[in-house]
Amino acid sequence: MREYDVLVVGGGAAGLSGALALVRSRRSVLVIDDGQPRNTSAAHVHNFLTRDGTPPSELTALGRAEVARYGGQFATGTVTAVRHGEVFTVELADGTTYRGRRILVTSGLTDVLPDVGGLAEQWGKDVLHCPYCHGWEVRDQAIGVLAVSPLGVHQAQLFRQLSDNITLLLHTGPELTDVQREELAARQIAVVQGRVERLEVVDGKVTGVRLETGRLVPCDVLAIQPTLRAKADFLTELGLKATSRNAAGVTYGDALDVDPQGRTSVPGIFAAGNVTDPTAQVVHAAAAGVNAGEAINADLIAEETRSALEVR
């Protein structure tokens, strides 16, 4: 079995950027990807300088071609376990194994969506979560914001920058404070009490949400806050587990803990991208991947220097 300098688990922006930094330093690299990117339903990538508006699949194809140009290799499959002996062994769901001196985990995350009828089918189309990723494209439309936590108010204020037709659907979110009600009213953000039962969709487009009471609240777009779960279960044998992430005292997901260079608590295992930073956009993930790739190369150089000194 061939042994690689680095096995990269995940072939998105973080993984490909880390792989590129490594292969350009003449490291042998294998990128293992399951072919199921988080942004598969999104039409375009945004806020990535010189690549704004590029379809995600096109950006991935360009990245893979750049990595391959320098000798990087690819394998398709789902990683189920990582074990550590003299080197690391990565096992895939089909039983295939690969060996590497270092591991870069860029496996991303899973969006756990609120339990509302029809929502999953519209996810990434006219059900979205990030005003910076998708806001310009839905500007001036009627936008409903589905509250599932106290963060719903903040999300409504963010989307208010993009449209003057915003409705905060309190759904399962907490009761508003008097201050919040005043702030929302001051910005002319409507507030609707009651749980949302399902989306109303006509010809593939959202036209509104139906409350459990039967009331229809018209909207063109629904903004939600999914729970963000790191795809890192395959690391449990090494004692690595995702920890909670919080904003304003509210838990919104989990992620792997790393230092500024992407090192985890297990020597030789590095991580970057959404698996460590759930709120990172594509450009952030790419930068983190390069950062981790450089740190891995330095780590390998230190090991090789120690070995050379022992031989000398």
Rank of each mutant, 00 (worst) to 15 (best):
R2Q: 12
R2N: 08
E3Q: 13
Y4I: 01
D5P: 04
V6H: 09
L16S: 08
L16D: 10
L16A: 08
S17I: 05
G18K: 12
V23W: 07
V23L: 13
S25F: 05
S25Y: 09
S25V: 06
R26E: 12
S28Y: 05
P37E: 10
P37V: 10
A42Y: 03
A43R: 07
N47K: 12
R51P: 06
D52N: 02
T54M: 15
T54V: 07
T54C: 14
P55S: 09
P55C: 08
E58F: 05
A61F: 11
R64M: 13
A65H: 08
R69W: 06
F74Q: 15
A75R: 02
T76G: 08
T78R: 00
A81Y: 00
E86H: 14
V87T: 12
T89Q: 01
T89C: 01
E91K: 01
L92D: 01
T96A: 12
Y98M: 02
G100D: 06
V105Y: 01
V105S: 00
G108T: 04
G117W: 09
G117P: 12
L119P: 09
E121N: 06
W123L: 08
G124V: 01
K125R: 14
K125Q: 14
D126E: 10
V127C: 12
L128K: 06
L128W: 11
P131Q: 11
C133H: 07
H134T: 01
H134K: 06
G135P: 06
G135R: 10
W136V: 11
A142T: 04
L146K: 10
L146W: 09
A147T: 11
S149H: 09
P150S: 08
L151H: 07
L151Y: 04
G152E: 05
L158D: 07
F159Q: 07
S163E: 07
S163W: 00
N165V: 05
L169S: 09
G173R: 06
P174E: 11
T177K: 10
L184F: 11
L184K: 11
R187G: 02
A190I: 05
G194I: 08
L199Q: 06
D203I: 03
D203M: 03
V209W: 00
R210A: 11
R210N: 11
E212W: 13
E212I: 08
E212N: 12
G214Y: 03
C219M: 13
D220P: 00
V221P: 04
V221T: 10
A223T: 11
L228P: 01
A232W: 00
E237L: 14
L238I: 05
A242Y: 02
T243K: 11
R245H: 11
A248Q: 12
G249A: 03
G249V: 04
G253T: 01
Q261D: 15
T264M: 04
T264W: 00
V266F: 02
G268F: 07
F270N: 02
A271S: 02
A272T: 03
A272I: 00
G273P: 14
N274Y: 12
V275W: 00
P278Y: 02
T279M: 13
A280Y: 13
V282A: 15
H284E: 14
H284C: 12
A285R: 12
A285S: 14
A287E: 10
N291P: 08
A295I: 15
N297F: 09
D299L: 11
I301P: 05
A302L: 11
E304D: 15
R306V: 13
A308D: 10
A308Q: 13
L309T: 13
L309I: 14
R312M: 12
